[in-house]
C-alpha cells in the first residue's frame, strides 16, 4: 500500500502551477489536502509522475469578504469553514454542512477546492454550494473563467478543468436575512459518502429558490427555479409547499429510473425542507 514513486513540487504562485501542469510529457496531478488523492495514490489507482502541491500558495489559503459575496481560496479546509475562521455569509449553511464531512482529522486537511475538483458525486460541497448558488473561479493559460458549481462537475470524478487550469477560489453569494436553507444526507454510517443528498435554499428578498438532489452517481440535479416544487420561501412551514411528485418527475427526466433510488432521493430533499433553518 505505497504509492508509486513520484516527483514533488510545491510552488508558491499559481503561475508556476499552471506552467507545471501544462507539461504533457508526464502525468501531473495537483494535490491540495490529499484526503481523497492520498487513498487513491496508496491504492495505486493513480500513478502520477509529478505531484504539484498547491498548499504552499498563500493566495489559495485565504478568503476575501465582499458586499454581495465571499471568495474562499481553494485550499481553505472544511474545518476552517466549520470553525468560522472563514466569515459565514450563508446563515449557517456552510459551517453546518462542513461539520458533517467525513471526520475531524480529515476536515483538518481536506479542502473545499480539492473536494469540488475530485468531483465525487456524493461529496457534500457539490450539493450545498449548488444550492446556495456558488461559483468557482478557474485560472489557466488563457486567464480566468467562472463556472457555476453544478456545471463544474462534468460527471463522476470529472471536473470541467481545461488543460493547464486550476481552481483558485469559490465565490459564495451573501444570503439575505430572509434566506432559509436545509441539508439532509442519507448515510448508513457517520462520515461515509452519502447514498442520497437533498439540499435547498430559498431567499425571498433576492427572489431565489433553489433545490438540489445530490449523490446521484453523477452530476447533482439542480432545480434553479424551484418555486413550483418547494415554494418561494415565504410560507411559515416550507414543507407545506413541497411537491414530491414533481421532484420525482424531474429525477426521472434526469435519468434516475430505479424507483427505490428515486424515492430515497425525494425523501432526502423532503427531509432537508422539513429541517429548514433558521427555524
Amino acid at each position: 500500500m505505497k504509492p508509486v514513486n513520484f516527483d514533488y513540487a510545491r510552488p508558491d504562485a499559481i503561475d508556476a502551477v499552471i506552467r507545471l501542469i501544462a507539461d504533457d510529457s508526464r502525468t501531473v496531478k495537483m494535490m491540495a489536502g490529499s484526503q481523497s488523492l492520498g487513498p487513491m495514490l496508496n491504492l495505486r489507482l493513480v500513478q502520477p509522475d509529478l505531484i504539484v502541491d498547491l498548499t504552499g500558495i498563500e493566495e489559495l489559503r485565504c478568503f476575501s469578504d465582499g458586499a454581495d459575496e465571499i471568495s474562499i481560496g481553494a485550499c481553505v479546509t472544511h474545518a476552517d469553514i466549520e470553525d468560522l475562521r472563514v466569515t459565514d455569509v450563508t446563515r449557517g449553511a456552510l459551517p453546518t454542512v462542513a461539520n458533517g464531512i467525513a471526520y475531524r482529522a480529515v476536515r483538518n486537511r481536506g479542502t473545499i477546492g480539492g473536494s469540488l475538483t475530485h468531483a465525487d458525486p456524493s461529496a457534500d460541497w457539490h450539493s450545498i454550494l449548488a444550492a446556495v448558488g456558488a461559483k468557482v473561479v478557474l485560472r489557466g493559460p488563457a486567464g480566468e473563467r467562472i463556472v457555476t458549481v453544478e456545471d463544474y462537475m462534468v460527471g463522476a470524478l470529472e471536473a470541467d478543468l481545461r488543460p493547464g487550469e486550476v481552481l483558485v477560489r469559490v465565490v459564495v453569494p451573501r444570503l439575505s436575512k430572509s434566506a432559509r436553507w436545509g441539508y439532509y444526507k442519507s448515510c448508513r454510517k457517520t462520515g461515509e459518502f452519502a447514498h442520497a443528498i437533498g439540499a435547498f435554499m430559498t431567499d425571498p428578498d433576492r427572489g431565489v429558490s433553489r433545490a438540489v438532489i445530490g449523490a446521484t452517481e453523477s452530476r447533482p440535479v439542480v432545480i434553479a427555479k424551484a418555486c413550483n416544487v418547494i415554494g418561494d420561501g415565504r410560507a411559515p412551514r416550507l414543507s407545506d409547499s413541497f411537491d414530491g411528485r414533481a421532484v420525482g418527475e424531474i429525477l426521472e427526466k434526469a435519468g434516475m429510473v430505479d424507483p427505490l433510488d428515486k424515492q430515497t432521493h425525494v425523501a432526502a430533499l423532503r427531509r432537508a425542507i422539513e429541517q429548514a433553518r433558521p427555524q
Binding site: Y8, P11, G33, T55, C62, R85, N108, T111
Partner: peptide, 15 residues
C-alpha cells in the same frame, strides 16, 4: 491559520 494542517510553514520547492 487557514489551510490544511501542516501547510504554510515552509519555503517553496521550486520546479
Amino acid at each position: 491559520r487557514l489551510g490544511p494542517s501542516g501547510s504554510g510553514n515552509a519555503t517553496p520547492v521550486t520546479a
